[in-house]
Amino acid sequence: MTDPIIDVRELRREFVVHTPSGKWLRRNRTTVNAVDGLTFDIPRGAAVGYLGANGAGKSTTIKVLCGILAPTSGTARTCGMEPVRHRKRLARQLGVVFGQRSQLWWDLPLRESFRVLGAIHRLAPATLQRRTEELIDRLDLGEFVSTPVRQLSLGQRIRGEVAAALLHSPPLLILDEPTIGLDVLSKERLRVFLTEQRQLHGTSLLLATHDMGDVQRLTERILIVDHGKLAYDGTLTGLAERVGAERVMVLQLAGPTRPLDDIPGTRLLDVESGGSKQRLSFVPTDTTAARILELVGRHAQVNDLTLEEPDIDDVVRRNYLRSAEESMRG
């Protein structure tokens, strides 16, 4: 059995915070558990979303996995290595993008940054040239690859950051808020590229983000962390079922129809166009779309229908509330 690319066991990371005490030159000393007993693993080739509110412990976890911070207790292994102990070796197996920080040289053209990074990773000239051209093509960098980084737009710079992180073809890519501040077109371009890279190179992905569009498009599993603790580990569908999130069936009927407010297992949301368009919500664990369609068909002819998935931000919020309620009961 292949070892996981990330393996975390009872990981804790504490910080000491000093706050004014109200007395002359006195400060209170408080210990904060940024990461509090996390345990999870990620198989090689997987794509996992890492979610949580600001201050939940996401960035601290990533810094431990990269070797920037040492654990207070517990263990973390990345690409089979202890991150702090083997930080230099790990750097060759790992690509990281922090949305608010840059690994590019501010005054150098983007292509020159790639050359410097290629030398740092000790890539052969032919390998560097081939990989650089591949990334320029895949990420549409050609128009600005000779432009100094300081002159790039945010979207252009983020694409350059992702290319820099993948220049040495690492088996693991960690992204911390990579699409923050990007416009819709730039986000979509980046998502398509990351999907292609996983298909072409089998790259493992850990994505920490607040953008639910990124999570839906790029990952097949999510981890939710709350106050440093793991609150959920599973699929988006499983999370929606856990909190009772509703799907919405939008029905286009053959003609005006009375409000369908008596369909078992559903809730009528609204009626439009004299009743020829109606929206019904339902909880997937209580009934199915096929059963609803069968029941609706007894009252009206259905010409078309669409299904709207639950709002992911709302699903995550509900999970936090449910976890808090379970903690209070416990």
Rank of each mutant, 00 (worst) to 15 (best):
T2M: 15
I5C: 06
L11P: 10
E14N: 11
V16N: 02
G22S: 04
W24A: 13
L25Q: 01
L25G: 01
R27M: 10
V32K: 00
A34Q: 07
D36V: 11
G45S: 10
G45L: 11
V48T: 06
G49A: 15
L51R: 03
A56P: 02
G57K: 03
K58S: 07
T60Y: 10
T61A: 09
V64N: 09
S73D: 14
T75R: 09
A76W: 11
T78F: 15
T78L: 14
T78N: 11
E82H: 11
E82Y: 06
V84G: 02
L90C: 04
A91E: 08
A91T: 03
L94I: 08
S102T: 12
W105V: 09
W105G: 07
S113W: 07
V116A: 07
A119G: 12
R122G: 05
A124D: 11
P125C: 05
L128Q: 02
R130Y: 09
V145E: 05
T147N: 09
T147L: 12
T147Q: 12
S153K: 06
G155P: 12
G155A: 07
I158G: 04
L167W: 05
L175V: 04
G181D: 15
D183N: 03
V184C: 06
K187A: 13
R191Y: 13
V192G: 08
F193M: 13
L194S: 15
T195G: 15
Q197T: 03
T203H: 08
T209K: 07
L218S: 11
L223F: 08
H227E: 15
H227G: 02
L230M: 11
D233E: 10
T237M: 13
M249F: 13
L251S: 05
Q252A: 15
T257C: 14
L260W: 01
D261C: 07
R267F: 05
L269Y: 03
D270Y: 02
E272T: 01
S273I: 12
S273G: 04
S273R: 15
R279W: 03
R279E: 11
S281Q: 03
F282V: 04
A289R: 02
R291E: 15
L305A: 01
E308N: 01
E309Q: 13
E309Y: 01
D311H: 05
I312K: 01
D313K: 02
D313R: 00
E325S: 04
S327D: 14
M328A: 14
